[in-house]
């Protein structure tokens, strides 16, 4: 390593990276807060339309996805706990389970969106403009924006966890590489991101599926 690129952390302080991660999570919260603000404004203006439009959403699919994400948060916690105890194989299994649950969430979401598309309900569609009031159009605008943005975060979370999984598997195979402590810290930060995605869904679910 050249002297122009000094090693960043000679002394490891996990609290430093956790503070950084939390600050990043705050920015994610504010990002979604902007969306929730838009939701609140339109919800007050078009409460009747929102009521009717929400009836067309599939409550059972929304409910299934809620349970899937809540459970994925649990498996995430278990993965970190296993890593902290130095049991890399078990941590890899739980991390894999978390990724799989994320995939289930996306598949369910995909079916939900596909069904809406088949009915001609998607942004800027002629059917949406013809058969729906402005309030209902805005409801779907918000629905697609918020669930789409959330799904994007699920994808990013899965990619981050997949990268972590590679590290964990490597640690499981050999005793070399970083110590389990350092890896647990990184897995925990990845987990924080995953939990945040869950927290946002906890709010999205009632706002879209439970207001009919």
């Amino acid at each position: 390593m050249s002297a122009a690129v000094p090693a960043p952390h000679t002394h490891r302080d996990p609290e430093v990276s956790r503070i950084g991660m939390w600050l990043f999570l705050l920015t994610e919260m504010l990002l979604f807060a902007g969306c929730f603000l838009a939701y609140a404004v339109f919800r007050v203006r078009y409460s009747g339309d929102f009521h009717f439009a929400a009836q067309e959403l599939n409550l059972s699919l929304g409910l299934v996805n809620t349970l899937v994400l809540l459970t994925s948060s649990l498996t995430m916690v278990l993965a970190i706990a296993a890593m902290e105890q130095g049991r890399a194989g078990r941590a890899a299994a739980w991390t894999g389970a978390t990724i799989a649950l994320g995939a289930v969430f996306l598949v369910v979401k995909g079916f939900e969106w596909a069904a809406k598309f088949r009915h001609g309900i998607y942004p800027n569609s002629p059917a949406l403009a013809a058969a729906h009031t402005p309030g209902e159009q805005v409801f779907y605008g918000l629905y697609y924006t918020l669930t789409g943005l959330h799904a994007l975060h699920v994808v990013i979370g899965m990619v981050v966890l997949a990268v972590m999984l590679v590290f964990v598997l490597r640690a499981a195979r050999s005793a070399e590489g970083e110590g389990p402590g350092a890896l647990a810290d990184r897995l925990e930060n990845a987990g924080l991101y995953w939990h945040l995605v869950d927290v946002i869904w906890i709010f999205l679910f009632p706002l879209f599926y439970l207001i009919s």
């Binding site: 948060s73 924080l192 939990h195 945040l196 869950d198 927290v199 906890i202």
Partner: peptide
């Protein structure tokens, strides 16, 4: 959300 923040996170 508070449960997730306090215990899971």
């Amino acid at each position: 959300a508070s449960l997730v923040l306090l215990f899971f996170m």
